[in-house]
Nucleic acid binder design. Structure first.
Lengths: 186, 186
DNA sequence: TTGCTAATGCGAAGAGTTTCGCATTAGAAT
DNA sequence: ATTCTAATGCGAAACTCTTCGCATTAGCAA
C-alpha cells in the first residue's frame, strides 16, 4: 500500500492522490482503504511514519563545515528525486488539512533534526562553536532553505542551493546567531 | 469575495474552505463562484494576487543588520496573525494542487524579495558586504526559517525566531555564503 | 477438521460536489 | 428610453466521493 501511495504521489501529485486510484494500484478494496485509513491524509501519515523513521547516515567528517555540507548534499540529493519532492509536498499539504498529519510531520522532522544535531554537538565538543549554540536551530537552518525553495519558490533543488545553505548555516553558527540570550533563572 | 475567502481560511483553514461556504458568506451564488474561479485554488490565486501586490514598507535604517532585523520583525508580526498564517498555509497547499497557484505563489514571493533586495543592494553600496553578494538569496535566507517553522515544524512564529533569522542571514551574508562562485565566461 | 474472530470484498445507498440549461438582471451603447 | 451583451441567480441533473450492510475469506486455536 505504501508503495502505491508513493507511486501515485509521484505520478499524479497530492492533488491526484485519490483513494480510488490507490485502491486500484494496491489491489486493496476501496472500502478497506476508508476503513483503515479514513482518508488520504491518513494514508500520508502512514507513509510518513514508514519513510520518516528509516535510518539515514549522519555525516562525521571531523569538521562542522564539512559535516553540514555533507548533510545539505544528502538533503539536496533526496529532493532532486521527484518521488521525494512529491512526498514532502503531499505531507505539507496534508498537514494543512489534518492535525494528525501536522503532528506526524513535525515529529518526524524533530526526530531527524535531533539525530542530525549530533553533528553540532560534536563540533561544540571540539570547541568549534560558541558555547550554548542551539544544535537543533543549526540543523533547522541547514534545512529551511530547501523547503523554501520547494514550497514557496517552487524551484529545483540543486547542489548550488546545498552549498549555500550549508555555508550560511555554518557562518551563522560561528557568529553566535544560534546562541540564545540564555535568560535563565538560578 | 476576497474577504469571504480570507475569513473562511482563518476560521476553518484550507481544509474547511468549501465553495458553498464562500458562496454563503460572500452572498455570491455557488454557480457563479464555479464559473468565475473554477475551484478553491482559483479563489486562492485571486486572493494571493490581491494581498500579494499590496505595498509593504522596506526598512532603511542605514545598517544591513538593523534592516534585516526590521524585515524579520515585519514577517514575524504578519505570521503571528492567524489570518495570514492560514493564508500562507492555504496558498502552499493550493500550490501543491494547482500549477496556476504554484506560479502565482512563486511570483508573489519573487516580487516581494526583489523589492526587499534593495536592503541588500544599499548595504553593498555602503561596502558592508562582499562584492557579488546575491541580494535575493540574502532576503530568501531571512524568510526561509519562517516557512520552515510554519509549514514543517508547525510551530508558532515569534520574535525570537525573527531575531535568529535576521542574525543568521546577516552573518552568512558577511561571510560570503551568498556570493556565488562567479563562473563567468568573458 | 471445526469453530471462532477479525478483516476484507462487494455492491448499493447516502452525501457532498460540480456542472448545466434557462430565466433574470445589470450595465453600456445607441 | 431601448436594445444588446455579459454576468448572475436558480434549481435540477450529473458526477464523484464516502459510508453502510451483508457475504466471504483469512488466520488462528481447539
Amino acid at each position: 500500500m505504501l508503495d502505491a501511495v508513493l507511486g501515485e504521489l509521484e505520478e499524479a501529485g497530492y492533488g491526484g492522490l485519490t483513494m480510488e486510484r490507490v485502491a486500484e494500484r494496491s489491489g486493496v478494496h476501496l472500502a478497506t482503504l476508508y476503513r483503515r485509513w479514513r482518508n488520504a491524509e491518513g494514508l500520508i501519515v502512514d507513509v510518513l511514519g514508514e519513510i520518516g523513521t528509516r535510518e539515514v547516515p549522519i555525516p562525521d567528517t571531523g569538521s562542522l563545515k564539512d559535516d553540514l555540507r555533507a548533510l545539505a548534499s544528502e538533503i539536496a540529493g533526496l529532493y532532486a528525486r521527484p518521488r521525494y519532492r512529491a512526498l514532502v509536498e503531499g505531507m505539507v499539504a496534508a498537514a494543512v488539512r489534518s492535525p494528525a498529519a501536522a503532528a506526524a510531520l513535525s515529529e518526524v522532522f524533530a526526530g531527524r533534526n535531533r539525530l542530525a544535531g549530533r553533528i553540532v554537538e560534536r563540533a561544540a565538543e571540539r570547541g568549534e562553536l560558541p558555547p550554548g549554540t542551539d544544535a537543533a536551530a543549526v540543523i533547522a537552518a541547514v534545512g529551511a532553505p530547501f523547503y523554501y525553495r520547494l514550497l514557496i519558490q517552487r524551484g529545483q533543488v540543486d547542489d548550488a542551493l546545498a552549498a549555500t545553505a550549508a555555508a550560511a548555516a555554518h557562518a551563522a553558527a560561528l557568529s553566535g546567531a544560534f546562541t540564545p540570550p540564555a535568560v535563565q533563572d538560578p
